[in-house]
Design a protein around this nucleic acid. Structure first.
Lengths: 120, 120
DNA sequence: ACTAGCGCTTTCTAAAAGTTAGTGTAATTC
DNA sequence: GAATTACACTAACTTTTAGAAAGCGCTAGT
């Protein structure tokens, strides 16, 4: 009865949680940042303005588990943990960066649409 | 003092809510479904298995406001509301479909990674 | 009368996000 | 010594959002 549904529209599709993680609020930003190079925890937190330690830690954990992110721990004092993208993570991040760039470039259109909507 | 920040990494960037909407759990699925053609409300709900009326309604409202989705109301009994993508929504949906297809095709890798992670 | 279709909206509960404080080691400054 | 800083998280509590279920009013069919 182990059914791996490969249809994103089906509620049981196993890719749904993964898609939610990579495209989610903090996942997309973390992956986009890591697309430009590896980061240590607090550096990544400063880059992704607005994310809490908790949400970042949680997000990175999920992304690591899904095979998108590599967590390299060095036994130093103070501790040193470096995050980077796996090859898979890199492929996904490229798509995410494309999406981000498109949305950013279309924001004037979005703002117009919002004003029109709010006036109706 | 009206500062439209065009950097997705900045917490005040106006594209953040829009990105969250299109890439969010239900937004991405609704846009991907609409990429294949227009749908009436309940047809869309049946297509995107697992979404509640409430979440779908809310999602479509946000997407309409952002200019991604067109809502065509016909004054019939019973009411007939048809949702379709705007040109902007179509551009965005294409990127989303790319992402979805990539993630779907890489799920065996993801599952492997998850097993490795859970065993460590 | 009851059921079904339509496209939502409202009310309540459950889950997740977010805020704040905490952990332990070491180094630096007063 | 005490206080502060760096590091990478984690725990406890509060707030927000998602989700579940019921509701609305109209019509048509059984």
């Amino acid at each position: 009865m182990e059914q791996l549904v490969a249809d994103i529209f089906a509620r049981d599709c196993t890719s749904r949680p993964t898609l939610e993680a990579v495209a989610g609020k903090w996942g997309i930003l973390a992956l986009a940042a890591l697309h430009d190079g590896s980061f240590r925890f607090n550096a990544l937190r400063r880059k992704v303005d607005g994310v809490s330690e908790k949400m970042l830690s949680q997000t990175l954990q999920t992304l690591e588990r899904d095979g998108m992110v590599l967590r390299d721990v060095q036994a130093t004092i103070p501790p040193r943990v470096e995050y980077s993208l796996t090859p898979l993570g890199h492929k996904v991040a490229e798509k995410l960066v494309d999406l981000i760039e498109l949305v950013e470039s279309e924001m004037p259109q979005v703002h117009e649409a919002q004003s029109r909507y709010d006036a109706s």
